[in-house]
Design a protein around this nucleic acid. Structure first.
Lengths: 116, 116
DNA sequence: CCGTATCCCTCAGGATACTG
DNA sequence: CAGTATCCTGAGGGATACGG
């Protein structure tokens, strides 16, 4: 089995961490887990993201096979983004982290206060 | 319950994602999950990290209450880092992601090849 | 052994404005 | 509607060298 070693700097496993480290990617993934969405819908749902950055994020995720991009030849133009099977499979692990974050962030903040 | 909203840019939940996004933090956490380690041991185990950056990482994690720092007044000096309970509780979620990464990184790379 | 002190430097991310 | 195009910035990462 192709299991890779996270400690090896040359190991591509790192790319996954990079992707998860990117806040926008995570938010896109969580958004799309409710179903396909259009560009503007994503833009509105995710606060504070500029179109350029959103486009970058979407392109990278598409490139990595995490999401799909479907263009409808209509007027006005319409583009829908959706999770691929691969992207969907990442939702679970991310949700686990997100849950931990929501439950423990107060402890972290508390700790920061103390050592301020 | 203090559950926080990941979609709110002002929500401190983001800090957790930032920490996980930091490759060094993750590697430190995974290293320490085997037990306490000294500075040099961490430095050696984690490839390609400079002392400055390692120190920064350790300080931040200590500040956030994820790890503890214990100084032994000896000659030569000795410092041991260990996971706190909070830090230990983060190991599970991170391990889930790491496992996913190791198992799926090949699919991502494959997808990248195709759309190259 | 365990870090600090400097300096550099790039580069991802954002603001803003515009187009097919 | 769904993006590009352009410019800018500053914060963090790394290399190197030195100190308690």
């Amino acid at each position: 089995m192709d299991t890779g070693d996270v400690f090896d700097p040359n190991c591509p496993t790192r790319v996954v961490l990079d992707r998860i480290g990117d806040k926008w990617s995570v938010l896109v993934l969580l958004s799309l887990s409710d179903g396909p969405m259009r560009f503007t819908a994503l833009r509105d749902r995710i606060g504070g993201v500029t179109p350029k950055v959103l486009t970058q994020t979407l392109r990278t995720m598409e490139h990595d096979g995490l999401i799909s991009r479907k263009i409808f030849a209509e007027v006005p133009p319409r583009v829908e983004y959706a999770l691929t099977d691969l992207g969907g499979s990442l939702h679970g692990p991310i949700a686990v982290v997100a849950t931990w974050a929501e439950q423990n962030v107060s402890k972290i903040l508390e700790s920061r206060e103390l050592s301020a």
